[in-house]
Computed example of a mutant assay.
Amino acid sequence: MSGLDELDRPGTPGGPDPRPDTGAVPDGRGTGGPRRGAADPVKALMHRHRQLCERAVDPLEIAAGLEAHGVTDRTAARFRHRDVFSLAEEMYARVSRDGDAPPPAAPAEPPPPRRRSWALLALAPGVLCAGTVTGVRLTDGRTCLLVAAAGVLAVALAVHAALRRGPLSGPRRDHPGLQRTEAWTWWLLGYAVLGDGLLRAAVHGGPDVLPDGRADGPWPLSAVPLVTLTLSCAPAAWSAHFLAVRARRRLNSSRALEEFAAGVQPLLLAAFALYLGALTGLAALGALALDEPADYAPVLTLGALLFLARLLTVHGFAHAPAVVIAAVGAAEALAPATVFAGRLPGCGFLATPVESLMAAWGPAGVPSLLCASAALILLVYATRTLTRASAHVRTDQPC
């Protein structure tokens, strides 16, 4: 913004001339020809954003890029335009006519027809996970271990494929921090399966001692969260598709940044509500099919956290989700650690928060509280970032 501030300040080189301009000045609709006179602030702005203007396929992408650099409708008024969209229209119209700007590159080959293969990819993780759980329950011994190992590998590959194509596709793996985010995400899913049993065992004496005092009982597992969350990849993809398509339409019809933000915010909340509704139904069906208690709180809060984190990552805001997911993962790892540390002499106070939370809400209260707080933070952040025009610039990924 510092460069734009200098450009907008009267009396600086390339800034708007405080004296009346006697040359030809467009009427503010963004369709006039090049400005003449002592100063041409739009040409200077085009020079600063030369690559943006050359790559843009329509004025909307220039408007989104300007907004990402901090240009507002108030800033556009200093360039004698009513809003950023009008300013972008003039920049798009002039980029091929200014002598100091090279002609735009030759149009590329038309994109191939859009395919809906991502819909099938989004269904694959849930189907494979449900098949793996069924296979594990029908086998035992070494066969059970082999089925479980093969199923985990298949589900991991299916999730990876679903996140590389379609509405849920985001930055490549070499994106800074993305691999750490994926590692913490798998930790959260693992805790959803094993964490409640680990925390309950820790409070009642240790990982080898069950609440009834037996030391040779099976380790308690919960398959419903994992099956539900993998099945929810499909509604997550459709909700992200819903938001992307309708936000793009809103971008085509909006004439001001405030108007676009006001129209996209309900779409964002609707996409989030659609996903939560589908996730609730899947949790109920999963509990019924697997004959396990339906514990909605940890599943819904974790699903909401992962959906919002992925939605932000898809639209280019990967740092905040990475920090939040890492914080939740570390806190979940710290919960049983504090219980064990509380058994040391004079350290009983360390286990008090976790034991109090378990006494009130059970072992599921710890991940539910952590994920709900993190999801709320990301939801507030998403309403401030995903309502920007720059978050919905056209990409090469089909929606």
Rank of each mutant, 00 (worst) to 15 (best):
A234N: 03
L188V: 05
E54Q: 11
L276N: 04
V380W: 12
A331R: 05
P20N: 06
G277E: 00
V323W: 10
F340N: 01
L257A: 12
A148Q: 10
L269K: 13
V209D: 04
A270F: 01
L376N: 13
P171L: 07
E6V: 07
A326N: 10
V136Y: 03
A38F: 08
R249I: 02
V209K: 06
V25K: 03
F260I: 11
C129D: 14
A183I: 09
D40C: 11
A309M: 11
A119F: 06
L267D: 13
D208F: 11
P336K: 15
G348C: 03
P103A: 11
P34S: 01
R172C: 09
A318M: 04
A284T: 12
L194N: 07
V159Y: 05
M1K: 11
I325Y: 02
S356R: 12
P41Y: 12
T338L: 12
G70Y: 03
Q179S: 15
L312S: 03
R384L: 15
V155D: 00
H81M: 09
L311C: 10
A297L: 10
L189T: 08
A183Q: 10
V323D: 05
E258W: 05
R164I: 10
T228C: 14
A289V: 15
V380E: 12
V147K: 02
P103L: 14
D73T: 05
L153T: 11
W361L: 07
S239L: 09
A289H: 05
H47L: 14
G281W: 05
W361M: 05
F79Q: 09
T22E: 08
A192Q: 07
L221Y: 02
C399H: 15
A284W: 11
R310I: 00
E89I: 00
A244R: 09
F85W: 02
A256G: 13
L268E: 10
A56N: 12
G365W: 04
V393I: 13
H49N: 13
A39P: 05
P10Q: 04
L276V: 08
A389Q: 14
V366R: 01
S356I: 11
R173Q: 13
V155P: 03
L221W: 11
Q51G: 06
T75W: 04
A106C: 00
D98R: 15
Y275A: 08
A327H: 12
L189W: 10
W238P: 01
R94L: 15
